[in-house]
Every structure is written in structure tokens, then in C-alpha cells.
């Protein structure tokens, strides 16, 4: 089952920030550096099913994944949902479903629109290396958790800033993942454009963070996503798609300012 886990000392009246990883099916390990830097906020990691050593024996659909996240979060008050990429889609979706409890959403480099997903496909298929072509084949023929990690990591140059590709690659290989989340929800994730229009009508505070050097989803594409959803839009220098991993300090400062102020 999914779970949330407090990563710092609990402050009774502080906001509750839930960090939701992407993938789908990655664990929250990429938030590690960020979590140590955020102060005056209760920081929780969200672990999707199968990402903390528990076993998942069936595909987990998008709806099931949202429901699991909802179960973990719905008993908290003063909630801020911060999702990376696919995690941001979940954050917006859940916020709309349990809105009085959610005070704010932070999307880190999250695609919603068909244009954004076309950009993902385009950038994911150009200039493939031999390792990537080989890993595509390995993953299609044997979609295990281990191969999912290796496949994801083989595209590290798409996900991390140039100076952080090696660290990012190794971080992904060290992660605990659940491929059944990816297989069950990746296709459905590309059909959530409507969420932007809905969240724009809400009173939930919204911040969209993107990396200046994101090679999967460039700044101008994400600026459009942000605009469609009525988000406040911020660009972090020298950061790729995993903005929070590439620039933990700048990202944490931005998040703290948004949540506290």
C-alpha cells in the first residue's frame, strides 16, 4: 500500500507539505536533498505502492493511484501538495477532489496538455543513443522494476542538467520503483488537460516551477501549461527536468516562500 512519511520534526501548527514523485512509479528519493533544506514546514514523502519495499502484484490504474494518495492525505489539514512531473498531475487532480483541505499546489515541470505530451514524445525519441535503444528493447520485452529503473536512468541526459547527469543517473538506479504504476497509469496521465481549466477556476494557491535547462519539457512549453492553469510561474536556473534534484537549494527557497508567505 502507499504511504506518507514525515521527514523532519513535526511542528503542530505548521503547514503540511506532501512531496509526490513522478514516473509514474518512481519513489521520492529525488526529493532527498530538498527535504533537508525546507524549514518551518512539515515535510512528508509520498511513497506510491511498491516503492518502499512492499510488493505490488497487479497493475495500478491512474484512478487507483489517485485514491491511494487521497487516503494518505485526507486526514491532514493545511495541506500543500508538491508533485514532480506526473506527481504534479496527481497533485492538481487530488486538490480538486479534496479542495478545502488543500491550501496550495506546487507543480514541478508537470505536463498536462496534448501539446506538452507531444513535446515529451518528440524529445524522448530524438538522437537516441545505442544504450537507450537497447534499453527500450530490454524494457519492452521484460518490464520489471529493475529494467524500469535502468530504462529511466538511460535517459538521464533528458532529465538532469548537464553538470548533474551522472548523479541523477545514479539516483534513479538507487531508487525503489514500481513499474506497475507506470504501466497502469502512464497512458491515462496524457489525458488530463482538463485539470488545468478546472484548477484555474479554484481558489487554491498555485505555483509552477520549471528548470531553465529542461530537455524533456522546455521552459516555453511549461510556461503555457502554467498559464492555462493560472499558476504563478518560476524558472530555476541551471536546472533540468528534475528541478528539485538539480537545484535543491533554490527550489526549497521558492517552496518555503510560497508556502509560508
Amino acid at each position: 500500500m502507499a504511504k506518507i512519511e514525515l521527514k523532519n520534526e513535526f511542528r503542530p501548527f505548521a503547514p503540511n507539505l506532501i512531496l509526490i514523485p513522478g514516473g509514474p512509479g518512481l519513489g521520492p528519493v529525488s526529493f532527498g536533498p530538498l527535504a533537508t533544506l525546507i524549514k518551518n514546514i512539515n515535510v512528508f514523502f509520498y511513497y506510491p505502492t511498491g516503492t518502499y519495499g512492499d510488493h505490488a502484484d497487479k497493475l495500478i490504474s491512474y484512478e487507483e493511484q489517485i485514491e491511494e494518495l487521497k487516503i494518505e492525505v485526507e486526514n491532514l489539514d493545511n495541506v500543500y501538495l508538491c508533485g514532480h512531473s506526473f506527481g504534479g498531475i496527481q497533485a492538481v487532480d487530488l486538490a480538486l477532489r479534496i479542495s478545502p483541505r488543500v491550501k496550495g499546489i506546487i507543480c514541478i515541470a508537470s505536463p498536462f496538455s496534448s501539446e506538452a505530451f507531444k513535446e515529451v514524445e518528440r524529445n524522448g525519441s530524438k538522437n537516441k543513443t545505442l544504450e537507450q535503444i537497447k534499453m527500450d528493447d530490454v524494457f519492452v520485452n521484460d518490464p520489471s522494476n529493475e529494467n524500469y529503473k535502468r530504462w529511466f536512468a538511460s535517459y538521464a541526459h533528458l532529465y538532469f542538467s548537464s553538470s548533474n547527469v551522472v548523479q541523477g543517473h545514479n539516483m534513479l538506479l538507487d531508487d525503489s520503483v514500481n513499474v506497475k504504476n507506470y504501466l497502469g497509469a502512464r497512458a491515462a496521465a496524457a489525458l488530463k488537460e482538463q485539470l488545468l481549466m478546472e484548477i484555474k477556476k479554484s481558489s487554491i494557491r498555485r505555483l509552477f516551477v520549471t528548470g531553465e535547462k529542461d530537455r524533456l519539457l522546455p521552459v516555453e512549453i511549461l510556461r503555457e501549461e502554467s498559464s492555462l492553469g493560472g499558476f504563478m510561474f518560476k524558472v530555476i536556473k541551471d536546472a533540468g527536468h528534475f528541478v528539485h534534484f538539480d537545484q535543491a537549494e533554490n527550489t526549497s527557497a521558492l517552496i518555503e516562500e510560497f508556502v509560508i508567505n
Partner: peptide, 14 residues
């Protein structure tokens, strides 16, 4: 259907 998407390719992780 969702569960058969992998046969036709889902795209890069996000």
C-alpha cells in the same frame, strides 16, 4: 485500453 498500452508504447517517463 490502459493495460495494453505498453504493447504500443507509452512514451518516456514523466
Amino acid at each position: 485500453k490502459e493495460e495494453y498500452q505498453r504493447l504500443t508504447g507509452d512514451g518516456p517517463g514523466i
